[in-house]
């Protein structure tokens, strides 16, 4: 029988963390997976680790959410989604959870988060990223968000991206 302290310790132990081999796998794949019809074999060979072990580690990291998925990340500019607008909204804190879920459910919103204000420089607490071919398309979408927020919208702006200065994805240090 486990007492409550043991259960607490177990809860701590179950925190998903990475060990040395996980780290080596992350370092070897953070720029991408080897281009090979058997990519996990190629990875195992490069790491000098058995392929079963590499696949088990990747599966474990995926189960624990450390790996969201193993997938292609498209360059949305190259795919024609040339306009990327970060719409930011000042809504009452006691309504932000309800409103955030409604805005996040709109099919053109790719990310939706609550973030802290930095008054007086930055009054906005709700962020919704929208993408489109043209500014007009993005502005129509922002209009839909404004209509949804109605009286709760105390102000908003759309920050258009004009240049990608860096895009590398996550890197962990050696």
């Amino acid at each position: 029988m486990k007492n409550s302290l043991d259960r607490l310790m177990d809860a701590d132990d179950s925190e998903p963390l990475v060990d040395e081999l996980d780290r080596r796998i992350i370092q070897a794949t953070q720029a991408g997976l080897p281009l090979d019809v058997r990519p996990y074999h190629a990875l195992a060979e490069a790491l000098e680790v058995a392929v079963d072990v590499v696949m088990a580690r990747l599966s474990s990291m995926r189960e624990r959410g450390i790996i969201r998925r193993i997938a292609a990340v498209p360059n949305h500019y190259a795919l024609g989604y040339k306009v990327n607008g970060m719409s930011v909204w000042d809504v009452p804190d006691d309504s932000v959870a309800r409103l955030g879920k409604q805005v996040g459910a709109l099919d053109f919103v790719s990310h939706c988060y609550q973030r802290p204000r930095h008054l007086p420089v930055w009054p906005y607490n709700l962020f919704a990223m929208v993408h489109g071919q043209t500014r007009e398309a993005v502005e129509d979408q922002v209009g839909e968000i404004a209509a949804l927020l109605e009286g709760c919208n105390r102000g908003h702006e759309v920050l258009y991206s004009t240049r990608i200065l860096k895009k590398t994805g996550l890197r962990i240090s050696k």
């Binding site: 998903p16 963390l17 990475v18 992350i26 794949t29 953070q30 720029a31 991408g32 997976l33 990747l58 990291m61 995926r62 624990r64 959410g65 450390i66 790996i67 969201r68 998925r69 193993i70 997938a71 292609a72 990340v73 498209p74 360059n75 190259a78 795919l79 895009k167 994805g169 996550l170």
Partner: peptide, 14 residues
């Protein structure tokens, strides 16, 4: 056309 192809890691979960 692709920025990357491979595992997408979640820093917070690590």
């Amino acid at each position: 056309y692709l920025s990357r192809f491979g595992p997408m890691y979640d820093a917070e979960k690590m």
